Amino acid sequence: MQRGVVRRRVVVRGVVQGVGFRWWCAQEADRTGVAGWVRNRLDGAVEVVVEGEQTQVDAMLAHLADGPRHARVTGVDVVAEPSQGLTAFEVEP
């Protein structure tokens, strides 16, 4: 685990697939300076892993709670995990 780096696994629920959520998420990750990944889940939710400094991760979590313009976020579940030293943000299929 890197010192000062935190990791959060997030499940975002609502109208979050088919609205550009994953690509928007990658843009927001770039703006906030976090690493990680995003992918659609079979249950209709979007799963996101975010790593970075606490303030960066907090900013990204706030963005995820709002979502992009065409999304309707109804719930966000956040779980803390040990950081894994990720250095980039990836959009998974």
Rank of each mutant, 00 (worst) to 15 (best):
A45D: 13
T32G: 00
P82R: 13
V11D: 01
E28R: 15
T32Q: 11
Q17A: 02
V11H: 09
E51T: 06
N40A: 03
G4E: 14
N40G: 01
G4P: 05
R3Q: 14
C25K: 06
E47P: 07
E92W: 13
A35S: 15
A35T: 12
T74F: 05
V10I: 15
D66H: 11
E51I: 09
E51K: 07
L42F: 03
V76K: 12
V57F: 02
D30G: 06
V16C: 03
H70S: 05
Q2L: 13
A88Q: 13
D30E: 15
A35W: 06
T74R: 14
C25E: 05
W23Q: 09
Q84R: 15
D58G: 01
T32V: 14
A71W: 11
E90C: 00
F89R: 09
A62Q: 15
V5R: 10
H63K: 14
E53T: 12
F89Y: 08
G33P: 05
E47S: 04
P93V: 08
T32E: 11
R69N: 03
V38A: 06
G20L: 10
R39C: 09
R31Q: 13
R13S: 14
A29R: 07
V16D: 02
M60E: 09
P82Q: 11
V38W: 10
H70N: 08
V49K: 06
F89I: 08
R13C: 03
R41Y: 02
E90W: 09
A65R: 15
A65V: 08
T87D: 13
M60P: 04
D30P: 00
A88L: 09
R72H: 12
V79N: 00
L61P: 06
V12I: 15
V57W: 04
G14S: 02
G14N: 05
R9F: 03
P82L: 08
P93M: 07
A62F: 04
E53C: 00
A80E: 15
E92N: 02
G52E: 09
V15W: 12
A45N: 11
V73Q: 08
F21N: 03
R69F: 11
P82N: 04
R69A: 07
Q56N: 10
E28H: 07
D30A: 14
A29C: 04
A29M: 08
E90P: 00
E81L: 14
D77I: 10
H63Y: 13
Q54K: 13
F21G: 00
E47Q: 14
V5D: 00
E28A: 06
V91W: 08
C25S: 05
V11Q: 08
H70F: 14
V49A: 06
A71R: 09
D43G: 01
D43R: 12
E92D: 04
R72S: 03
R39S: 07
D58P: 02
P93I: 04
V6S: 01
G33E: 10
R13K: 15
R41H: 03
Q2C: 00
E92R: 15
H70M: 14
E51A: 01
A62M: 11
G85V: 11
A88C: 01
E28G: 00
V10N: 03
G85T: 11
V73P: 06
V6T: 13
Q54H: 05
A65I: 09
A59E: 15
G20F: 13
V49E: 15
